[in-house]
Each structure stands twice: as structure tokens, then as C-alpha cells.
Amino acid sequence: MLFQSHSSLSRRLLFIVPLLGLILLLSMVASLLEGSSGLGIADVLASFSGGGGKAAVVQTILWRIRLPRAVLAAAVGATLSLGGLVFQARLGNPLAEPYILGISGGAAVGAILGMFFGLAMFPGVTLLAFAGAMLVMATVLLLARTRGGGRSDFLLLAGVMLNAFCSACIMFLLSLSRGSQVQHILFWLMGDLSMAEPGRLWLLLPLPACFFLILILARPMNLLLTGQESAAALGVHVQRLTWVLLGTTSFMVSLVVSQSGLVGFVGLLVPHFFRLLLGPDHRILVPACILGGGAYLVLCDLLARALPAGGEMPVGVITALVGAPLFVFLLWRSRT
């Protein structure tokens, strides 16, 4: 395992955090330089050196369209990756992902209801998506609290079932939708970062606080990986830790899903990628997933805009197209 050795935690962090931070920064800069308006590096650089109507247009595109989009992509990537990491640790299941507790299903039903009734993207659809996600997630957690007791797979199964129910609702709503509505809904279901707007970025403000909380809980999460009883025997309040972790994660994932639609695969791929590369220590993995996950989605979004000639494709298509083969490759590598 690369980089996993005796070398102390702080030395590894001092190497990994600046490196991934730099990659994130570079990918965001690259993302600022590429877009459907055909604006190149030369135009952007020229607009800085001043003057003219074109420079003003370029500056507007840069700061009001591309920057919000890059920031949203980074936030969504970071949140989904971290969400995957947390759910995989708590559920003790390497295939858990951020949508597992029904967050995706709930958000989708909410969002599609909004689009179906022709509400505006904000606040209507966004709020409904957030409400739907939180509602389903709360249902799962309450069910687990009252009935699930000691069964470790209860959360997983309850989430899967509620997601299946939500899927049926989505299909039902889709079958009633017409024309442009259908494409709108499909784009949302595949993850759509083009909804980014500077006026709405404040909605992402709670994210750093959520990230910080999870970073603090990195050591208890490590202990949790060795089993719930073993963690408890080492002084961890497993119940309390569970509610804080799942509550925080569900909240932040609902928040970004309501902004971006369902971007798949990030939460599965990124934590596994870093776990194979850096080992299972969450004090390393949490910052790695935040920075690396952000960079991954920014780059995928860049591809989603650059690949199709004229126009763009939903970023979820790219994350799955790139992610699925990469994931299979990683699995194959880890077996040998």
C-alpha cells in the first residue's frame, strides 16, 4: 500500500493535503478556462489586462457562470466522497454510498414533483428536493432507532427499500410527464451542475462546518471499523457517534443533492480509491476525500462540458463512465 508506513501521521498529512489541495486548485483553474461559449485562455488573460466590451462579457462569464459552477462541482464532489467514506465506515460495508439511506430517492421524488408542477429551480425544486431527502432519511433513522436495535444491516436494508419505493414514485411521475419536462427530469436524475448560480452559493455555507465535525470524529471512526463492540470497549459511544455521523452526513448530502441532482459513483469511487492508496486511517482519508473528491468532480464536469461538440452532457454520465471502469480496475488490482 503506497504511503502507508510507519511515518508519522503529521508527516503524511503534510505531504498529502498540500498535494491534493494543489490538484483541486489546478482543476478549478482549468475549469474556469473551458466552457460552451468557446472562451479560451487567451480571451480570459486578455480580459484581465483590461478594456473593451468583450473583456466585460468574458469577466461576467468567468465570475458569474464558470466560477459558481466550479465551486458547486468541488462542493458536491467533496460532500459525496466524504458521505461515502462515512457511510462505508458506519455501516461496515464497502459498497455503501452516500445515497444509501434513501437520500437520492427522497430528493428525486421531491425535485421531480417540483418540476412536474412547473416550479422554478430555486427555491421550489431545490427546497422540495432537500425536504424529500431529509424526510426519507429521518424515516429510516427513526425506524432503525425504534425497531432496528442490534441488527447492523437494518439501516442498509431499510434505506434500500425506501429507495426502491421512491423509484416507483419517480417512474410514475415520469410516465405522466411530457416533452421538455422529461428531459429536464432526466438531466436532474443524472446530475446537473449547470444549475449553479452565484446567488445560491450561500446554500453551501454549512458544508465546511459539517466537514470539520467529521474530521474531529476521524479517530472514533477508525475504531468503528474494527467492529461496534470493539469500538465501545475502547471508549466510543457508538450510538451517539452513529447519530452525529449519519445526521451530519445526511444533512450535507441532501443539501448538495438539492443543488446538483443525483451525481452517482463519486461517493463509491473516491473513498475506495484513497483507501487503496493511503490505507484505512480516517485522519488521512477525511481530508483526502474532501480535496480529492472535489477535484474529481471538477475534472469530470470539465470533461462533461468539453467532450460533446456544442452543448454539454450531465456530469453523472462522466462520473459513471470514468468511474465504473476505474473502480473495476481497482478491485482487480486489490485482489492480486
Binding site: 502507508q4 510507519h6 465506515a89 461496515g92 460495508n93 464497502p94 474531529i216 470524529l217 479517530r219 472514533p220 477508525n222 475504531l223 471499523l225 474494527t226 467492529g227 463492540e229 470493539s230 470497549a233 475502547l234 471508549g235 466510543v236 483507501r275 490505507g279 484505512p280 486511517d281
Partner: peptide
């Protein structure tokens, strides 16, 4: 201290990391 035979092979820590976990009850969160 409780010694059980649990092992989660999906999340493999090294021996040293595992033994160090024993310090957790003596350390604050941060």
C-alpha cells in the same frame, strides 16, 4: 480492556495502527 475475536477484513489496519488504537481512551478527541 476487552479482547474479542472480531476482525473486519474490508478495512485492514496495520498491526501498529491497531495496537495504537488502545491509546484512544487516554486521548481527547483532538
Amino acid at each position: 480492556a476487552l479482547v474479542t475475536q472480531q476482525l473486519n477484513p474490508d478495512f485492514p489496519f496495520t498491526v501498529e495502527e491497531t495496537v495504537l488504537m488502545g491509546r484512544a481512551p487516554h486521548l481527547g478527541l483532538l
